[in-house]
């Protein structure tokens, strides 16, 4: 069932190779984006006993485990910040990223009946599944703030840069999600690589340890993993860690933009096959 909003002439013909992203189409369907995001949020914790608590449980217990094993036993340094706070400040954006990544990667395959029966810009599907993670992020973030007050740490003015850092995390999740969701339509192998990928990425990102373990220029090069910039940025903005990650964030932003743009083009290129092969 579908509707195309065009008052003028629509021309349908085979497309060849790389095609334009058509951001205007996306804008025209912004209400659908809103409704699909809203649906994902509504449905997520329906018929669960703990409901939205799940948004906290995942990062919180990871923090507890990390504090116990890395903080207490392994005595991993934490830039002079209490270890639980140090790891939780990273786990909150990380959880947003990891859930957004895995949900967007599986989003197309999970919307088979929409894709085969209705026309709309397919980009909306992975975008809405990343956006729906904001609510979980907000809940976890409140818990983080409560924890920070408990430890007597009050955010500095740098907190106003937080939305930008969160956007960086979103762009990274979406960039990878666009690649993987399009690949997932063709190769269901992708589904099995996602848990492995996120776990690997978790340890490749300075969440349990600080990036200050590396010396320059390696620390800046580390920013090629865009989540390094996000996580270190969060620590700096929220906890005033003395590791102002300027150069890292710059490198990370470049890489994540590259991921997003290439992901979007790859997605558009594959889009025409979705309905036929999903």
């Amino acid at each position: 069932m579908q509707q195309i909003l065009h008052s003028s002439t629509t021309v349908i013909k085979p497309s060849k190779g790389w095609v334009s992203i058509r951001l205007r189409d996306l804008w025209e369907y912004r209400e659908l984006l809103y409704f699909l995001t809203w649906r994902d949020i509504k449905v997520r914790y329906k018929q669960t006993a703990l409901g939205a608590l799940w948004a906290i449980i995942q990062p919180f217990f990871t923090m507890v485990v990390f504090s116990l094993f890395f903080g207490r036993l392994a005595k991993v340094p934490s830039d002079g910040i209490p270890y639980p706070l140090f790891s939780f400040a990273a786990l909150v954006p990380w959880t947003f990223f990891a859930n957004g990544l895995s949900q967007s990667s599986n989003s197309l395959v999970g919307s088979t009946d929409l894709i085969t029966k209705v026309y709309f810009p397919r980009l909306i599907i992975p975008v809405s599944s990343v956006l729906s993670g904001f609510i979980d992020f907000a809940i976890a973030f409140i818990v983080f703030m409560a924890m920070a007050f408990y430890y007597g740490i009050y955010p500095a003015l740098s907190i106003i840069l937080l939305p930008f850092l969160l956007l960086l995390g979103l762009i990274t999740a979406l960039g990878v999600g666009l690649w993987l969701s399009a690949l997932n339509v063709k190769f269901r192998d992708v589904r099995y690589t996602i848990p492995f990928l996120t776990q690997f990425w978790l340890f490749a990102t300075p969440i349990a340890y600080p990036s200050s373990l590396l010396s320059e220029p390696w620390r800046t090069i580390y920013g090629i993993n865009p989540m390094v910039g996000v996580v270190e940025g969060f620590r700096w903005a929220l906890l005033g860690a003395d590791t102002a990650p300027g150069a890292i964030i710059f490198v990370s932003a470049l890489v994540s933009m590259g991921l997003l743009v290439s992901g979007a083009f790859y997605f558009k290129r594959m889009e025409k096959f979705f309905a036929d092969i999903i």
Partner: peptide
């Protein structure tokens, strides 16, 4: 090639 003049709505399901 197909050209369609006007707003299209379709009910496939």
């Amino acid at each position: 090639k197909v050209s369609i003049n006007g707003r299209v709505g379709s009910l496939l399901e």
